[in-house]
Design a protein around this nucleic acid. Structure first.
Lengths: 341, 341
DNA sequence: CTGAAAGCGCTTACAG
DNA sequence: CTGAAAGCGCTTACAG
């Protein structure tokens, strides 16, 4: 590998000068800088990550803690993060926090303590309290995204408002028997995303004077949504509308409706959350959020944090109406307000 | 940060001994090793990645070059890779090769030359010839996966056989008017995956004595499949079956059939390639491959390559029949061989 | 503006 | 089996 001394020799200067010319730090004459850069480009020299990291204490690398790596939402966030990190010379190292206890411990107690990263973006939804402690003890700038825990500095969406918006959309259409598909974590303080969405749902229903709302906890997968919705549709008095806490859950509900012979939206309205790339094909009404942009903002935020600045804030969302929601079939009597279309 | 000297002091030995005790390299007494490890655990000491990399020349990190980061297939491969790397103490750094020329150059000429990784897994489908040159010039162990270029050592699936299997499935059902949805790269040597699949398709059709097969090039997305299939279905003599080169293309074809009022499989049979997590819900017949397992094998292969060993080989695939394929409607006359079911 | 030299935190021949 | 010391390839006060 060609090293800094090779470049110094080629440019007729010292290694110190090469370092200054390439990093842009310290004073150096324009002529020298140009000569050194030309020599470096010529030799295809690139500063060694390890040596530079050791000397400066900066790794030029951001760690991203991800939950399972295989969900659509996270793939898009990652792409957004990469798009902002690369141009600024940062690499991105992934740390997968699976369900396996030993694995999680390894990430928290070993991998992340190797000093390989300057900052962390945490995408993991479900961190135990002691895991948050250990994350914070790393003493690394951290930015949570979609984070469940209030103790983590994070970029957040107003999940209560998201759920309210979705529920009120259904209520405005005239639905009264509305079921919510989400998740429930035992022993949770109730401030995680699924809980917040459930709160928003409950609040909207309460405001509408409806007491008997249904909630079903399942996992955030198509299959989870499928099983939960299928069970609901087989009840004596099935809901006329489902508010699913994610688009993937909603897809499952759509497939369930199909397999139970229900027409959407005539027999069942379905609304999701995410703005999944496939939601348009399903005609799914959803509360869209923007994962790619969220990734970009998270990247900017960690980089700011690495420089000692704070750059957090709220993330945006938007109702996207499509064909999976309408007034309940034969339910005009239930509908207060606007006349049927 | 607690360093090696802190541990040495705590254990009453030298830094050299601590290093040996923790790395497992070099001879050391069991008692000393145990004492040192206890002290390290006690202090929460973890070897600095930068210092260790600089001293040994090994980064304990594998780079993964990915195309866009937002396709289902790659997300699963990544998960598979991570599952094998982490337990062996390796981290995984992602390098996104987008469509942007400057970005790709940055990855090849700068990021990957920083010495941050010991080996590379290349998932990128479309590398130009000079990009492969530069990749090879890195002088790093490389393992391609789903790789387009024959000059890259890679784990491969027999794409010609995959396409043959899919096409022959359709032929065996009695289809004659079969269209293939794939991709075409201009100026390509014809050994990339889409081309190989097309070759397999052509060969199977030729063997069946069919000369007028249709091929449509589009991009490997749901939307690409949707647009291509929709156009096909509007032709005067639409195909009775579509072989899509990926499940996402196939999903698009399924949505197109729906929007054109065609029943699947009565009016149109559709077969894909991948075994996408949603294919089951769509009832999509497909040639399944196993991305998670492929990721695991790729990880094992780079790690072997880092140690100077070669561990490549062929990847497996399997026909999974579901409800999107059947004999063509009213097409029994066309069917040669077995009687109708 | 530029160079010599110390130092970043480990690892590993080399001695013993 | 263990320690002292050189060295990995940079960066950055410190002089000049």
């Amino acid at each position: 590998m060609t090293g800094i001394d090779d470049v110094a020799r080629a440019a007729g200067v010292s290694a110190a000068t090469v370092s200054r010319a390439l990093s842009g730090r310290g004073r150096i004459s324009d002529a020298t800088r140009a000569r050194v850069r030309a020599a470096a480009a010529d030799l295809g020299y690139v500063v060694s990550a390890a040596a530079s990291a050791l000397a400066t204490g900066r790794a030029a690398n951001i760690g991203v803690v991800v939950p399972l790596l295989d969900r659509w939402f996270f793939a898009n966030v990652l792409d957004g993060i990469a798009s902002r990190l690369t141009p600024r010379g940062y690499d991105m190292t992934l740390y997968s926090m699976s369900m396996d206890r030993a694995q999680r411990d390894g990430v928290l107690d070993v991998s992340l303590r190797r000093g390989r990263v300057d900052g962390l973006i945490v995408l993991s939804l479900t961190l135990a309290d002691d895991e948050v402690d250990r994350l914070l003890a790393l003493d690394l700038p951290v930015v949570g995204l979609g984070s469940t825990n209030r103790r983590l500095p994070a970029l957040r969406i107003d999940d209560v408002a998201v759920a309210r918006l979705a529920t009120e959309h259904l209520l405005a259409l005239g639905h009264r028997r509305i079921a919510h598909l989400g998740a429930g974590y035992p022993g949770d303080p109730g401030l995680d995303i699924p809980s917040l969405r459930r709160h928003g749902f409950d609040a909207a229903m309460a405001d509408a004077g409806i007491r008997d709302s249904r909630f079903v906890a399942t996992d955030f997968t198509i299959d989870g949504g499928y099983r939960a919705a299928r069970a609901l549709l087989r009840e004596a008095e099935p809901p006329t509308a489902i508010f699913a806490a994610s688009d993937e859950l909603a897809f499952g509900a759509l497939f369930a409706a199909r397999d139970e012979g229900r027409d959407v939206p005539r027999d069942l309205s379905v609304i999701g959350v995410d703005g999944h790339e496939m939601s348009d094909f399903f005609g799914l009404t959803t509360i869209a959020q923007f994962p790619h942009e969220q990734g970009e903002r998270a990247a900017d935020a960690v980089l700011a944090a690495v420089d000692g600045r704070t750059e957090l804030g709220e993330l945006s969302f938007r109702l996207v109406e499509r064909t999976s929601t309408s007034a309940p079939h034969g339910g005009l009597a239930e509908k207060s307000g606007a006349p049927a279309p």
